[in-house]
């Protein structure tokens, strides 16, 4: 999965978008959800995306996650221009180079935890043995290694979200996007899930963009982007002193 990158590629930001717009609907009911957004996200960074409801956070995440096409603007992944790629190429980047964690978790109910984690690698045509190995490793890494054979309805919300995170990271993506990943969880399991993200960012250098409404959660990131009305309101680094490491809280 981890392709050898040229020096230029690895020095390029994981994501570089400029003047992205996304307009829903037409005519009278037109909604400009993204109004010319430009941003670069360097490798290894953990970014919190914040803002009031309806400010366009999910829309931006969906465009970044290749789940939707922008109305206009340019999109570069590792320096590669994706503005005019085929839907097949988009599909092949989805889940492999750019992984998504949803507020709604979205595990397939008919598959076990293990098979859910294997799914993106099935579509990536990873050989069965390697697939199994990577899935098991990922499940262990997020702390649900003992639950591999559970079905989704036999998992708690926090466990299910961790399985979903394992599913996202198992193929070794360049970027992990998480849209309110703790939104459906109670405080305790939310904090656990947050700890998982931070340890992935720290130990593996995984680039993460996470939407959150919680300012405390926001301060776990090293950079905060605040949105309003489809635009960036503020984009700033978090002082090291301000940062609270969730895994420290968890392990404490």
């Amino acid at each position: 999965m981890s392709q050898a990158r040229t020096a230029a590629e690895s020095s390029a930001p994981v994501i570089s978008v400029s003047t992205l717009t996304k307009i829903y609907g037409q005519g009278e009911v037109k909604v400009t959800a993204l109004d010319g957004v430009s941003v670069e996200i360097p490798r290894g960074q953990m970014v919190a995306l914040m803002g009031p409801s309806g400010s366009g956070k999910s829309t931006l995440m969906q465009v970044l996650g290749l789940l939707d096409r922008p109305t206009s603007g340019s999109y570069r992944l590792n320096g590669q221009d994706l503005s005019r790629v085929s839907s097949r190429t988009m599909a092949e980047l989805r889940g492999r180079r750019i992984a998504f964690v949803f507020q709604g978790i979205h595990l397939l109910p008919r598959l076990s935890a293990l098979h859910n984690v294997e799914l993106p690698m099935v579509y990536a045509r990873v050989p069965a043995a390697e697939r199994r190995q990577r899935a098991t490793d990922a499940l262990n890494r997020v702390g649900v290694g003992a639950l591999v054979h559970r079905m989704p309805n036999q998992l708690s919300g926090g466990q299910a979200q961790r399985v979903a995170i394992a599913r996202a990271v198992a193929p070794g993506p360049d970027l992990l996007l998480a849209d309110e990943p703790t939104g459906a969880l109670d405080r305790a399991s939310g904090r656990e899930v947050l700890g998982v993200f931070q340890s992935l960012n720290q130990s593996m250098g995984l680039t993460i963009v996470m939407v959150t409404h919680d300012p405390v959660v926001g301060r776990h990131a090293e950079r905060i982007i605040e949105m309003e009305d489809g635009r960036f309101l503020r984009d700033y680094a978090v002082d090291d002193g301000e940062r609270i490491w969730a895994h420290q809280e968890v392990s404490a």
């Binding site: 789940l67 989805r94 595990l107 799914l119």
Partner: peptide, 16 residues
């Protein structure tokens, strides 16, 4: 639709 959406988000091609 939901299952299809999940599969596509996980990298399923149109052909899959």
């Amino acid at each position: 639709f939901r299952e299809i959406g999940i599969r596509k988000a996980m990298g399923a091609r149109d052909g899959d």
